[in-house]
Design a protein around this nucleic acid. Structure first.
Length: 712
DNA sequence: AAAACATACATTTTT
DNA sequence: TGTATGTTTT
């Protein structure tokens, strides 16, 4: 990987970036090498005599952290700097200061599936009806509260309407359930750390002493809790360096607050600000399109993308009949690229939602093109993986009832619902954990003799594992896998068991790798680390395969050739974000991130029909297509229409509209034209309806009537 | 108690 | 469309 971006910095920029003292903000557009700037700063600090031990760099993903470690070493900075995500850092801090934080250091980390179970229990305990208080909705609300660092007490005292009061109830119950199980969810990791740092000055001082230099990448996607953590960590010395690009903020839905980066200069008044506007990645054609697109965002500081690469190839905007056509065309073009000498790891296909990967996969399989899907969780949410991990979790944290209930009868060992319910009752009555009750199963009168002996055998097995649970993790994992009977049950399950066995093999390989690279391998540490990993971290850029991923996963990557598919109203922008101006702008930023991944070839496309949930629906091209200002690919448009002959897009006429004109739609009512793109029969009009909705409509199908015609 | 079956259900993005 | 849950059957 070349280092043009660094070499091109002016000497004053270099000096600012490498300067030791004080706050530093690097605002940098896509392709400007901002992550590399951080790496250079790390190297420069170390070369100037700062101990790596005193440096803490925070990245957005584990993969980015790993990459940064490699690059720093390549620049001559020996290892030793702490480079990780916020979440990993918090795990380390919470383990080191467990007593001060008031938690047990063997805590389990609860992922979304675990959270769902807890919240369901909480809703049930509060005797609320699950339709109005759906677990998903509750979880979402609670997560938002936690990200804003509003704890149960604070929220409870300000809850004044019916919904908030019920929510406060569920929130409280949920927190109690987590506490009983010694579990922390993702949001807790941040929340607890923030409160620890803010509440304990000696902890803050010690960590400020340890991490004398704080560097944070992708600052535009930090949430409020992360913001407070960063602030606390840097409070002692002010050596905080943040890099980011407000135009690439795409995680609002997860609590990311763009104000964090916008307020950096007022938070740190003596901050040095470096702006990097030159783009070393993409051709001028791509950047011009990206520039035109992002200019449609109103809540944005004016910023330009300055190309350093010449014009190369026009951005291609193409339409297809349906999603299968679209996928096939992508596959065909990839074949052509390969024929011209492109290697497959220089090609990526981006889409808005994971569900869209299937049709692309099918086309690639048909074309015999190797590919790799970069996806969020997947691997760790497989049943067999969760089962094995649940055994390990219980060894570390016997209070983890979720894990315990998962394995108590997996594989089947004749411990059924009734038995479990009886044990649970006993536990509740005695005020002890489920596991403690299990240990005393012999004393539970209502249990049958058979049940007692089965439970005793189960507990004895766990105790056996427990004695072997120190040191390297891999041997333990293997032993648990075979002795628990998991292995046997998979082997007996025929063909689908085989897949599962392979997955477990893969897990054990990963465990062995952990054992090798961890300074001090421990089961606790392993489990806590693995909880924060996702499939996206396993993306292997060196494999000679096409990369398939969502636009979100594309962040931080770059490819010679990029295809973005499904540019349809309701998909991109997604329907959930279409009515809200802020969310629409985020969708636009998401598309912006996608197209700025491309170095030379960029093709965006949409299909006129798309099958969604088994139903084929006519789709409307995304407004973003027009905002690119690249025009449609006339040729493919004609090809498609000649095949279909029923409609001729170009010769068909449709009424014309003017911006600002009042119109009426039979479903959406009265509205005002915000934008009109005249393309003959396929003209598109964007209308703001008085209902507050805003729609892109194809004039031909919309049946809009002009208010100015009414009187005639 | 487990498997087979039926039915309702919700459907974005991920540390 | 698939998943995820509940119901019936064995």
């Amino acid at each position: 990987m070349d280092d043009t971006s660094w070499a091109q910095l002016t000497s004053s920029q270099k000096k600012a970036v490498c300067h030791k003292e004080g706050p530093l903000l690097v605002i940098a557009g896509p392709g400007s090498g901002k992550t590399r700037v951080i790496t250079h700063r790390i190297a420069a600090l170390i070369n100037s005599g700062i101990r790596p031990y005193n440096i803490c760099a925070i990245t957005f993903t584990n993969k980015a952290a790993e990459e940064m470690r490699h690059r720093a070493v390549a620049l001559g900075a020996s290892g030793g700097a702490h480079i990780s995500t916020f979440h990993s850092l918090c795990v380390r801090i919470l383990r080191a200061y467990a007593d001060e934080a008031g938690i047990n250091r063997n805590f389990s980390i609860y992922d979304e599936a675990d959270q769902r179970r807890c919240i369901k229990q909480a809703v049930k305990d509060c005797e609320l009806d699950a339709t109005n208080f759906s677990p998903a909705r509750m979880l979402d609300a609670i997560s938002t509260l936690k990200n804003k660092l509003i704890d149960v007490d604070a929220f409870g005292s300000q809850a004044d309407d019916f919904f908030s009061q019920r929510l406060a109830q569920v929130y409280a119950r949920y927190e109690t359930i987590l506490a009983e199980r010694n579990g922390l969810d993702f949001d807790d990791l941040l929340k607890r750390t923030a409160f620890l740092l803010e509440g304990r000055s000696e902890v803050r001082r010690q960590l400020g002493d340890r991490f004398k230099f704080l560097l944070i990448d992708e600052y535009q996607d930090t949430n409020h809790a992360q913001y407070r953590i960063a602030k606390a960590l840097a409070s002692a010395h002010g050596n905080i360096c943040a890099t980011g690009d407000p135009d690439q903020s795409i995680y609002r839905w997860r609590g990311a607050d763009i104000r964090n980066i916008l307020a950096f200069e007022s938070d740190w008044p003596d901050a040095t600000v470096v702006r990097l506007e030159e783009n070393f990645r993409s051709s001028a054609d791509i950047l011009e399109a990206a520039d035109r697109l992002i200019a449609f965002n109103k809540n944005r500081k004016q910023k330009r993308l300055v190309p350093t690469r010449p014009h190369a190839k026009a951005v291609l905007v193409t339409s297809f009949e349906d999603e299968a056509d679209e996928a096939e065309a992508v596959a065909r073009q990839i074949e052509e690229l390969v024929d011209c000498g492109t290697s497959l790891n220089e090609v990526a296909v981006f889409y808005r939602v994971n569900a869209m990967s299937r049709v692309i996969e099918e086309a690639l399989i048909a074309g015999n093109i190797p590919y790799q899907i970069v996806r969020g969780v997947e691997f760790y949410s497989r049943k067999e993986i969760r089962d094995l991990l649940a055994y390990l979790k219980v060894l570390v944290n016997p209070s983890d009832e979720i894990a315990l209930l998962r394995i108590i009868n997996t594989p089947a060992r004749g411990i059924g619902k009734v038995t479990i319910e009886r044990v649970r009752n006993y536990a509740v009555r005695r005020g002890i954990t489920f596991f403690e009750a299990l240990k005393h199963a012999g004393d539970i009168d209502v249990l049958s003799k058979a049940a007692k002996s089965k439970l005793a055998a189960f507990v004895a097995m766990l105790e056996r594992f427990k004695t072997a649970s120190t040191g390297d993790v891999a041997p333990l994992a293997e032993r648990v896998f075979s002795e628990s009977g998991l292995e046997g049950s998979l082997r007996g399950a025929g063909a689908e068991g085989l897949d599962a066995l392979e997955n477990v093999d893969e897990l054990i390989t990963a465990v062995a790798q952990y054992d090798r690279q961890a300074e001090e391998p421990s089961l606790t540490d392993f489990l806590q680390q693995i909880s924060l990993f996702s499939d996206a971290d396993a993306y292997d850029a060196s494999g000679n395969r096409v990369a398939l991923m969502t636009l979100h996963a594309a962040k931080g990557l770059e490819f010679e050739n990029v295809f973005v598919v499904g540019l349809e109203d309701g998909l991109l922008p997604h329907e959930r974000g279409i009515d809200d101006e802020d969310e629409l702008e985020e969708e636009r930023r998401l598309f912006f991130v996608g197209i700025t991944r491309a170095k030379t070839n960029l093709q965006v496309s949409y299909s006129r029909y798309r099958t969604i949930r088994g139903q084929m629906l006519r789709s409307v091209p995304s407004q973003f297509l027009f905002e690119l200002g690249c025009g449609f690919d006339e040729r493919s448009e004609e090809e498609d229409t000649s095949e279909k002959s029923e409609f001729d897009h170009h010769s068909m006429t449709a009424p014309e509209f003017a911006v600002g004109e009042l119109v009426r739609h039979k479903a959406f009512g009265l509205g005002r034209v915000e934008k009109y793109v005249n393309m003959g029969g396929s003209s598109v009009v964007v209308v703001n309806f008085s209902s507050g909705q805003r729609k892109s409509l194809m004039v031909r199908y919309a049946g809009l009537s002009k208010m100015s015609d009414l009187g005639r």
